[in-house]
């Protein structure tokens, strides 16, 4: 199954690459600050240029240009770098708590709890993914099943779900103690929120039905907007709520979107050309 010569060659390449890249660091270190800044700016610019050019260059009948296929081949390696950048957060967290525990800082016991949880879960999570793919001869055992179910389904998921549900309590308390109708704008906001909150749940339909408002829209009502039934129908809470969402809310969201989109484009250009100050 496992071709050892292939694996040996791969390992050879990888070790070589690590040696090369780490040998490069002292060399890079000789650069003066200005040179370092320039090098970073060049890296930023070139990687941006690749994707920009892929988008802007004309394409053939298959919808491809000269950069489309290279992009395909690069895709996986970019995923790897993204994953490494996501792993940076984990690295920082573990580094911090390891330091807390080793130096016996205040509350270091909690850091220890965190580290033990981390190591245990990491062990079973890696085992689980390996067993799933039957890699390195790893098998699914009852111990793995039981431990992973306990740690994942009955601990991690429960804690995660509970953490997020805390906010409901905070919202309720804030609703009573802090949400004040103190200005015209707060009044508009609160009023809209209340109409929407009742109109979109079945209760809104129930209230409108019990007030005797028409329940269906007939063709006649559709073509004759000034018919009394039509006006009454549109006064139903679900109809009002949907009208707020679709007719009033949609253009507001679109205006916000345009602001975000133009802002994001401007920021992309500033970052791409390393014009943003205080960051680089």
């Amino acid at each position: 199954m496992f071709d050892t010569t292939q694996a040996t060659w791969a390992a050879f390449w990888i070790i070589g690459a690590f040696v090369l890249f780490f040998a490069l660091i002292p060399l890079l270190q000789t650069l003066p600050p200005r040179g370092r800044y320039m090098l970073i700016a060049v890296f930023t610019f070139i990687s941006g240029l690749f994707f920009a050019a892929e988008f802007f260059l004309p394409v053939n009948e298959e919808g491809k240009n000269i950069l489309t296929d290279p992009f395909q081949r690069l895709q996986g390696s970019l995923q790897v770098i993204t994953a490494l950048s996501l792993g940076l957060g984990t690295y920082g967290l573990i580094r911090l708590h390891l330091r807390n525990a080793v130096q016996r800082r205040p509350q270091w016991g909690y850091s220890l709890v965190l580290l033990i949880a981390f190591v245990t879960m990491a062990f079973f999570s890696v085992w689980n993914t390996l067993a799933e793919k039957e890699l390195l001869g790893v098998q699914r055992t009852p111990l793995l099943e039981r431990a992973f179910t306990l740690l994942f389904d009955y601990t991690l998921i429960q804690l995660d779900a509970t953490m997020f549900s805390l906010i409901a309590f905070y919202i309720f308390s804030a609703a009573y103690r802090a949400f004040r109708i103190r200005s015209i704008e707060a009044s508009i906001l609160m009023f809209t929120a209340m109409v929407v909150m009742i109109g979109i749940v079945p209760l809104g339909k129930f209230i409108s039905d019990s007030m005797g408002l028409p329940t269906t829209l007939t063709d006649e009502m559709r073509t004759n907007p000034f018919m009394l039934e039509n006006i009454l129908y549109n006064l139903r809470l679900p109809q009002i709520a949907n009208w707020i969402l679709n007719a009033l809310n949609a253009p507001v969201q679109r205006a916000i979107e345009f602001g975000i989109g133009i802002g994001a484009l401007a920021m992309a250009i500033r970052l791409w050309l390393s014009l943003e100050r205080g960051i680089n």
Partner: peptide, 20 residues
């Protein structure tokens, strides 16, 4: 879930009004 959702809305609205 739907009943609990809609009655929590009623509760929140009542308490916003009550607080004000």
């Amino acid at each position: 879930f739907i009943n609990a959702i809609q009655f929590s809305h009623v509760l929140i609205i009542t308490f916003i009004l009550l607080g004000n």
